[in-house]
Amino acid sequence: MADSKKVEIIKPPSQLRDKVTVGGPNAVGPEAIARAEQAIADLGDNYLEWAQEDLVKIQTAFAELDNEGGEDREAVLKRIFSVAHDMKGQGGSFGYELVTSVGNLLCRLIERLDGSVTPATENEAIRIHIDAMSLVISSQMKGEGGPEGMAILKGIQQMGTKLVPSK
């Protein structure tokens, strides 16, 4: 009993401070940060290609939701969640914040699926989100997408909540 309450404090043997230097021409200042942001922007040229690959993956998985002889529904939903989660995590880095926002809504939607609505209704709610991401990417709608982007986001938010209400 006494041992379970025992607290041991340990100072790690080496600290990162010993491995870095301060200042100098190679130190990280505003220029290095700008270079790093530029490196991200350069990768952004590839982003739409990556996003297209993700869209194909998520659309393929979605098509399997109706395939009764295929993978179990839970497993397919997990795959859809995984791709949506990746898209959520990447869009904003490359200036596609709307992809991140819609991806987040899709993840939250899948998390609240508990069998309280029919599979057809669940599918419809998921489809709206996938179609929105497809539209954002195909029309290269950067940032939050302006008034059109706001309208898309509001629309799928309302439809998602209407079809699969939050508890």
């Binding site: 379970s4 309450k5 025992k6 607290v7 041991e8 404090i9 340990i10 100072k11 790690p12 600290q15 990162l16 401070r17 870095v20 990280v28 940060i33 790093a36 942001e37 490196a39 991200i40 959520k88 995590g89 990447q90 869009g91 904003g92 880095s93 490359f94 991140t100």
Partner: peptide, 26 residues
């Protein structure tokens, strides 16, 4: 995520500057 260069550097700096002791408890 999504990550930016500034945020990632801020975390690396935090790891360098906030030297953490380790705790062994239960």
């Amino acid at each position: 995520k999504p990550v930016s260069a500034e945020q990632l550097y801020a975390r690396i700096k935090a790891v360098i500057e906030r030297e953490r002791v380790f705790v062994k408890a239960g």
